[in-house]
């Protein structure tokens, strides 16, 4: 029943699309399903955001065309970026990014850069928090740092997602500040990393809030500090007595490190200006929905929204930052 309606609808849309093509030029509208490429596996932060947006757009009927989410995670996301880079002028393709937009070309030498793509909008920035197992005695970041300093190199194990990506960059930054080596163990996804911490197989993680919040609420994990310049602006109580806002910044705790991860959209090179404007407008509508606000709330995102010039400026400085961090960590691919 449902599928028949759907088919009818799709068929009507197809006819509509043909008509629109032959008609006079108006504001750009998609003529067939819009593809969102996720350069990461299923279940990660970017994937979740893309799928929630897909749900929001279809639930509120924000677009006449449906959204298709496709994961292209090969080569640390390089596969997805190359695909978009090579789809020149495709107005129906978007890619949601994470930090691998910057780290993958640097670490693997896969030939692409954000400059090959058309920036659309920054949807939010994802925070990073230093987590430990709640059974461990470390109540503050200072306790934990002191413990690391007191022990020999490589005693403490840091779990993270992937190799030579954001989690390991932060780990290297921590090592630089406290002058001790940590053992970094890469896993496939953020959810898995959080579970390994709950099971006590690693000593700490730098999970994004949304990956670890369920375990925090269950009293299994403890947040020590957030890698941002200011505390998170979410005051609802998550556990009995703590809200996101009660987590101190790492800077307050003597760990002067800031790191935020981009959750933004790009399109292939050479797309029309009208198409970009359409998607910017679509994303603005998405940001107004209650579901989006709930996602932001659950994941304690930094809700910066940028488009156009401002977005490009941000990207330029972020690229520079990553290049510096990756170079000093020795993560650049051998040419």
């Amino acid at each position: 029943m449902e599928s028949r309606n759907r088919f009818f609808f799709a068929g009507a849309a197809l006819v509509g699309g043909v008509l629109a093509l032959s008609g006079p030029a108006r504001a750009w509208e998609p003529t067939h399903p819009i593809e969102i490429v996720v350069p990461a596996g299923t279940g990660g932060g970017a994937d979740q955001m893309a799928r929630v947006m897909q749900g929001i757009i279809s639930k509120h009927g924000l677009s006449k065309q449906s959204i298709v989410v496709i994961n292209k995670s090969g080569g640390a996301g390089g596969e997805g970026f190359l695909d978009v880079k090579n789809s020149k002028g495709d107005d129906h393709k978007l890619i949601i990014t994470l930090s691998n937009l910057f780290t993958t070309p640097l670490a693997t030498g896969i030939p692409f850069s954000w400059k090959d793509l058309t920036p659309v909008a920054m949807m939010a920035l994802d925070e990073f928090i230093l987590w430990v197992n709640a059974d461990k005695p470390y109540k503050t970041a200072k306790d934990y740092i002191d413990a690391i300093k007191a022990a020999p190199d490589n005693t403490f194990k840091m779990g993270g997602t992937g190799s030579k990506q954001e989690d390991q960059i932060i780990t290297i930054a921590i090592e630089k500040v406290i002058g001790k080596k940590l053992t970094y163990i890469p896993y496939k996804g953020g959810g898995e990393v959080a579970v390994q911490l709950v099971g006590g197989h690693v000593d700490s993680t730098v999970n994004n809030p949304i990956e670890a919040v369920a375990h925090w609420r269950a009293g299994k994990l403890r947040p020590l500090c957030v890698f941002d310049s200011k505390r998170l602006d979410y005051h609802d109580k998550i556990t009995g007595n703590m809200s996101w806002n009660d987590i101190p910044t790492c800077k307050e705790s003597g760990l002067d490190i800031e790191y935020l991860m981009l959750r933004g959209y790009f399109m292939p090179p050479g797309v029309s200006k009208d198409a970009v404007a359409y998607y910017v407008d679509l994303f603005k509508k998405v940001r107004e929905t209650p579901e989006w606000k709930k996602l932001m709330n659950d994941g304690a995102y930094n809700q910066s929204f940028m488009t156009g010039e401002a977005y490009v400026k941000w990207l330029e400085s972020a690229e520079k930052l990553h290049e510096d961090l990756m170079r000093s960590a020795g993560f650049l691919a051998k040419k």
Binding site: S3, R6, F7, A10, G11, L14, G17, V18, L21, T31, H32, P33, E35, S66, V68, I70
Partner: peptide
């Protein structure tokens, strides 16, 4: 085509004919 492109929204490789038909 109906099953993959329309119902399940799985895009498969398309060529000039599909483009000509506006898809």
């Amino acid at each position: 085509f109906i099953t993959f492109e329309m119902w399940f929204l799985v895009p498969l490789p398309k060529g000039p004919l599909e483009t000509y038909l506006g898809y």
